[in-house]
Design a protein around this nucleic acid. Structure first.
Lengths: 188, 188
DNA sequence: CATATTAAGTCAACGACGCTGCCGTAATGG
DNA sequence: CCATTACGGCAGCGTCGTTGACTTAATATG
């Protein structure tokens, strides 16, 4: 932000009303604004994620399972390495989660048609049902926030969130938003 | 965004062009909008948190330490139980983190004046320096997002994030925002 | 004043979920 | 044919969350 520029020392103090923001307080407010943003992210994510926890713990699953279910559900036929790139965890961490989900019949694997080394992941009916159940918990919270905030705020929310994430994630979001409007199957 | 208003059920179908949104597709878009919000939260938080990871790992600290530093820095003199309420972790999880931070000289404890059972937590100069270093990493990312998105978007972002979190967290944010404008010491 | 109650520290044990490193197998592609 | 790639599995480890029980000191209350 512009707290990078040094103040010209010759600026006349008389030009400022007594209680107007000084440069120092402007800088303070800028920094404070960023710290408030940290708070916002912490609390919103804390309560967003815990919304689904009860359902998960009743099944003996964790948040890692939820994340996998979510992104497999949104990207049917996704390969393991693509999923690794989204979750940004290691193969072994994902393997533990995936083997549970496959073992309990929530996720199926199928060899890719063009490249038979790949295991294309999809949700089973049971997996889709569980994902929906988890989704509903978070949906309530998100829908309430969207409704209270209004359309303009939601658009701003999206813009800021996009800006926070890295470029590859923005590219992913572009693809997801595109698919929302032209719902056709992605090639396997 | 305009899928916010429910469609009047009596609206004649003939008024719609063939490819216009049906009720089913409106519902689909609503759900898709919520799923996109899930994606946004995941990616933004993923990249927000990892911004400070390099600094942390060089010091052999983790994200839990960062969170504690952050909230102690923002609430000098906070009690252990207040901090527990913010972080929503157990006393033992916090104890591990705190003992490291105290042991390395980042945090000090002082008995409360009105209630001497309490250990009021504050950052030392070293702790404030470390927190600042961690803050700078996240500040870059947040400030870039705020700058790109613009003031209106930031306001919307805040409104939605507030709506996602639970009531007690909103109350906390109210207090934090108030303190930003009337910077006076909180009573110990 | 005796007796809860509260704030905090502590120990033991465990679970979820990250990590690294290494090896194996199968399929792909130059 | 051989290097590379996609994936799975194993061993071991670290962080950070959990529960439960116990202690100490200070406060609040009957």
């Amino acid at each position: 932000m512009s707290d990078r520029k040094a103040e010209p020392p010759s600026r006349p103090a008389a030009a400022l009303p007594a209680d107007t923001k000084t440069l120092a307080s402007l800088l303070f407010l800028r920094e404070e604004e960023m710290r408030l943003a940290q708070d916002l992210l912490f609390f919103a994510y804390r309560d967003f994620t815990c919304a689904a926890d009860r359902v998960l713990s009743e099944l003996g699953l964790g948040r890692a399972h939820h994340r996998a279910l979510h992104f497999i559900g949104r990207n049917p036929g996704i390969s393991v390495s693509e999923l690794l790139g989204i979750l940004r965890i290691t193969k072994q961490s994902l393997a533990r989660v995936l083997s549970t989900l496959v073992g309990r019949g929530y996720v199926t694997q199928a060899a890719g048609r063009s490249d038979r080394r790949q295991r294309r992941l999809s949700l089973t009916a049971a997996g889709a049902g569980l994902e929906r159940q988890l989704f509903e918990r978070q949906r309530e919270r998100l829908a309430g926030a969207y409704r209270e905030a209004g359309g303009t705020a939601v658009e701003g929310f999206r813009r800021v969130m996009r800006g926070i994430m890295e470029h590859d994630a923005r590219a992913y979001m572009d693809g997801a938003e595109r698919e929302a409007h032209e719902p056709r199957a992605r090639p396997a």
